[in-house]
């Protein structure tokens, strides 16, 4: 089925071994950013080359792959990555969260709870949560090494000072297993609680930045906050216009030129199942 011009899942075995070593290290030290020698992939950066390499390194022929972009299976990005693995690995694909063994994602965690039989791979543009506060890599590395995270708290302080509340609504920083502070990739903060105590393995790949990090199953993940401004996983205060769900994360969709809009589930699989009454 797969294209014989390529090794299984495109990457050669040496490269996969190198990436797996980085992944294992990441799992051994949850939340720690492991450098790895990111390879050129036949797609532009920003298209999830980090996630694709992680997926390729852990994929087996028996895997059933789901790819989502902002919750949807049918966007260009998701479709092309799915096709890429169909062609280079010949694996089965699905749009159903519950049927997938591997899910590569950009910007969302599925609404359907994950299980211990699944691996969730995140595409990460900027792995360093302090990048915009402290541009010096030597200094951020030292901050992580010493768990010296006052600066992270300053970022949240600035948010409240300027907006009256913690306005960071995606890529909301978390503390992993009481140790490393981690950028969960640009998922909405609504998804942050799903990171915590999750039965699935969660892997994060940043291609351009050449970093891999990981959350082993059932890792404690805490969103940073203040005692008097506790973390809240917020979403638009509506129900989905299609399936009626009041609990799933919603996208605002402009429906016409006259300013018409509606709110629909960002997770298209969840929405379809829910509409059928099966979610």
């Amino acid at each position: 089925m797969s294209d014989q011009a390529y090794n299984f899942a495109y990457l050669d075995e040496d490269t996969k071994r190198m990436i797996r070593r980085a992944i294992l290290k990441g799992i051994a030290v949850p939340g720690y950013q492991v450098p790895f020698a990111s390879r050129e992939m036949p797609m532009p950066y920003g298209w999830g080359t980090g996630g694709v390499q992680v997926t390729a390194a852990v994929m087996t022929p028996e895997d059933v792959l789901k790819v989502i972009d902002q919750g949807a299976d049918d966007t260009t990005n998701a479709v092309s990555i799915r096709k890429f693995f169909q062609r280079t690995a010949g694996v089965a694909t699905t749009e159903r969260t519950s049927e997938a063994t591997m899910i590569q994602t950009r910007h969302r965690i599925p609404e359907t709870p994950l299980t211990s039989d699944q691996i969730l791979v995140y595409q990460v543009p900027i792995p360093e949560p302090m990048r915009f506060l402290e541009p010096r890599e030597t200094e951020t590395r030292r901050i992580h090494a010493l768990a010296d995270y006052g600066l992270m708290q300053v970022r949240l302080y600035e948010d409240i000072a300027r907006h009256g509340e913690i306005a960071t609504s995606y890529a909301y920083p978390v503390e992993v297993a009481g140790r490393y502070v981690m950028d969960p990739s640009p998922i909405p903060k609504f998804d942050n609680p799903k990171l915590d105590d999750c039965p699935a393995i969660q892997l994060f790949g940043a291609g351009r930045e050449q970093r891999i990090y990981a959350l082993p199953p059932y890792t404690h993940v805490r969103s940073l906050d203040f005692e008097d401004h506790p973390f809240r996983a917020t979403k638009a205060d509506h129900a989905c216009a299609i399936c009626g769900s009041a609990s799933s994360y919603l996208d605002e969709v402009i429906t016409d030129d006259a300013g018409g809009r509606m709110f629909v589930c960002s997770d298209t699989d969840y929405c379809a199942q829910n509409a059928k009454g099966g979610a």
Partner: peptide
């Protein structure tokens, strides 16, 4: 790049203050 308040508060936050 950080407000005056954030500049002054950093030491407190770095040593565990978590009440805004």
């Amino acid at each position: 790049g950080v407000s005056a308040g954030g500049n002054v508060g950093e030491r407190l936050m770095a040593t565990g203050a978590r009440h805004y």
